[in-house]
Design a protein around this nucleic acid. Structure first.
Ligand code: MN
Ligand code: MN
Ligand code: MN
Ligand code: MN
Lengths: 217, 217
DNA sequence: TTACATATTTAGACTAAGCTAAAAATATAT
DNA sequence: ATATATTTTTAGCTTAGTCTAAATATGTAA
């Protein structure tokens, strides 16, 4: 697998989670920041390698083989992110770009040892689950903060968006993985909320609430 | 700098240390395991980028710019090797291939933090010096074991060859970085030696003696 | 059902990095 | 100094991955 092939598989894997049926050429192109024509070429190649099933004008669907390789790359990405944050003290908004590079290092032994060195973590610094050796992704019970009703509470377990800007906003508001959040009010009209975090109480927009995962308590 | 460009610069840097004048096309090709015609293309490109000075039919010479980039890649390679051995408990004969990949990860911050995490080591697991941030390579006083005379002693400080086979031979003989070696006898005719290491006493061929660096005591 | 809009594929071109085979320059040995 | 051998370069092809522009298929709305 080349670096480009791995990135395509990863993108298709993620898109597959977001919607059930086959993944469209344009969706892949948008996610990869490439042109649809480039995607067509690549999915044809990946289809030849039995990584996915491709039907002209329909889209792509990962095979078990392709799914496993994608999960392996995601596993590496997330383990490296844990390393960067836990061992090198990077901040959670600084690790993604570096992990994008590290995820392509090829050595099974390396990943096994890294995993052990890190204490076999289950989640990455953004709360995303780390696939196991066989590519199995543990599904956890989590919902978006926006789904909580007034007077309900949750513990932050992850972020949907993990752009620098969003993560820095959360820092400013003292929200991190493990932080308890109480919904004090919810505006039906625009989906905004008033929440309390620790002793602070403030307003958040719908956009924020829709990008924070919580586990209800 | 692409991965290929970095590898060429690294090869030329190493060849430059081994002999004073400009580095020949064939020498680069041999070291890179590519064809001379490919080397010609690449050195032209690197010359355009001011990484080296290239004179047709003469060879290549790194500029300060090229030398610094090469040293940076070597710095990364050796720091990662230290990480693999010290933190992930890899054996010294298993790390080179992985470091060949890791050395191309681009992030200054990563290397700064990795360096600190490792305690700012001066040498890699094979006894090779780690260039500093500015690409300066500390020259150390060391000689080949083959240069020692009978009844002299040295401490092993590095290996010239670091192939798996050679390193495994050293393990078998209980020779590692820091091991004291006494020359009990030296055969003028074939350069072989009788040495003692700890309580053991044995014969080594010239080939071995010419690939072990020692510091005299 | 026809017409328009959108999605997708095809055709053809480009760059990076490699190769082979042939040509040209340099080095060496009589 | 000439002939031969070696080294290096050039010319022309190849593959991976990308792009633009044009062609084609599919979806939608009158
Ligand atoms: Mn990430
Ligand atoms: Mn992550
Ligand atoms: Mn090495
Ligand atoms: Mn080394």
């Amino acid at each position: 697998m080349t670096l480009a092939e791995e990135n395509y598989l990863k993108a298709i894997f993620h898109l597959d989670l977001e919607s059930e049926d086959e993944v469209s050429t344009n969706a892949i192109a948008e996610r990869m920041e490439t042109k649809p024509s480039s995607v067509t070429d690549m999915v044809k190649k990946l289809a030849e390698k039995k990584m996915l099933i491709y039907k002209r004008y329909k889209g792509a669907q990962l095979t078990e083989k392709g799914r496993k390789i994608a999960a392996g790359v995601i596993r590496k990405h997330r383990l490296w992110e844990v390393f960067l944050v836990e061992k090198l003290n990077f901040h959670w908004d600084e690790v993604h770009e570096i992990a994008e590079q590290l995820e392509h290092i090829k050595s099974d032994e390396l990943i096994t040892r890294l995993d052990n060195f890190l204490g076999n973590p289950d989640f990455d610094p953004h709360g995303d689950p780390i696939p196991d050796k066989d590519g199995v992704l543990k599904r956890t019970e989590k919902k978006l903060l926006s789904e909580l009703e007034k007077n309900h509470s949750g513990v932050c377990v992850g972020v949907k968006e993990s752009s620098g800007g969003f993560l820095q906003y959360l820092d400013k508001k003292k929200i991190a993985i493990g932080t308890k959040i109480n919904v004090l009010g919810k505006e039906f009209f625009d989906g905004s909320m008033v929440i309390s975090v620790g002793n602070e109480q403030f307003f958040i927009s719908k956009l924020i609430a829709e990008n924070l995962y919580v586990q209800t308590i």
